[in-house]
Nucleic acid binder design. Structure first.
Length: 283
DNA sequence: ATGTGTTCCTGTCCGC
DNA sequence: TGCGGACAGGAACACA
């Protein structure tokens, strides 16, 4: 899935199509994704206006005029595809339904937003906007990495005493929101930290140095429109370009791009997932 | 309480 | 060209 930069890219692509627009019709084509979809979802969406399209961690949040918020998680393979957004578009301008098109939102403007998710690890829920922060999917999530609550002292305190590898700690959404396998690998490489190091045994100043590095990686990725890997595309169908910015992810066997480092990128497996690192400059 | 391994599901790619 | 296995951006859950 899309990690934070990809979800933010999707949000920016969808906002002009959805914000301020009413949903004329919602077509819910299967009863469940990762979990059952909320009861009566189509009826609860129909006629609602999207007041604002936001993001928290890897969740898209559509605040509706009905007082509810639509929560969307893209899982590993979820996409939000837009069609018919041109001025004066008609229903016939929409492409035929594809396999795994699970939820289709037809906006009053004529634009259509289609949630497509082959692997179905994605999720949707509807909940009262006033109680959004208490929703079970959101309540335990840590600070936004690009926000003020994520800072050096915070990360040092949260990693202190932790025996798990720092890679696993940064993937833990309760510690910091929105990071996934790609950007954790990239951030640890830029910070020169070995992903296998126990989180609590890294010098505080090195942990502190991770904070601006994480912010920089995410900001660069957002600026590039995210990464397009496999089935992920931006909502406008264009590719994101950040995959050209990867220094280690997916680059096993290639020379380490760090200045003055003659190492080779290696792939290892940590808790069942690939980690890419340069054993020479990451300590 | 922590840390680790398994699981959900489908598609793609690579080697034989 | 077909077939089997590995692997893919997540994260809840079960278990040590």
């Amino acid at each position: 899935m899309p990690e934070l930069p990809e979800v933010e890219t999707v949000r920016r692509g969808l906002a002009p199509v959805m914000e301020g627009q009413a949903i004329a019709r919602a077509d819910v084509r299967r009863p469940d994704l990762r979990w059952p979809l909320p009861q009566g979802m189509a009826a609860r969406l129909t006629g609602a206006r999207v007041e604002r399209l936001g993001r928290r961690s890897k969740y898209l949040l559509a605040d509706l005029s009905t007082g509810e918020t639509l929560i969307v998680h893209l899982g590993m393979s979820g996409r939000m595809l837009v069609s018919g957004a041109r001025l004066g578009a008609f229903a016939r301008d929409h492409p035929p339904a594809h396999a795994h098109d699970h939820v289709v939102l037809d906006m009053k403007s004529g634009a259509r937003v289609t949630f497509n998710d082959a692997r179905r690890f994605g999720a949707m829920d509807l909940t009262a906007t006033a109680a959004l922060d208490a929703h079970w999917l959101l309540r335990d999530i840590g600070p936004e990495p690009l926000g003020n609550a994520f800072h050096e002292d915070y990360l040092v305190a949260r990693l202190k005493g932790r025996r798990m590898p720092v890679k696993a700690a940064l993937l833990d959404q309760r510690i910091v929101a929105g990071l996934g396998n790609i950007y954790v690998c990239e951030a640890l490489h830029r910070a020169g930290i070995d992903p296998r190091r126990r989180a609590g045994r890294i010098a505080a100043r090195r942990v502190a140095a991770l904070v601006p590095v994480i912010r920089a990686v995410l900001e660069e990725a957002i600026a590039a429109g995210g990464s397009s890997l496999r089935d992920y595309r931006r909502s406008d169908g264009e590719l994101g370009y950040f995959q050209h910015g990867f220094r280690v992810y997916g680059r096993e066997g290639m020379p380490c791009p760090a200045a003055g480092c003659a190492g080779t990128v290696r792939r290892i497996v940590q808790s069942g997932r690939s980690t890419f690192l340069c054993p020479r400059c990451q300590r």
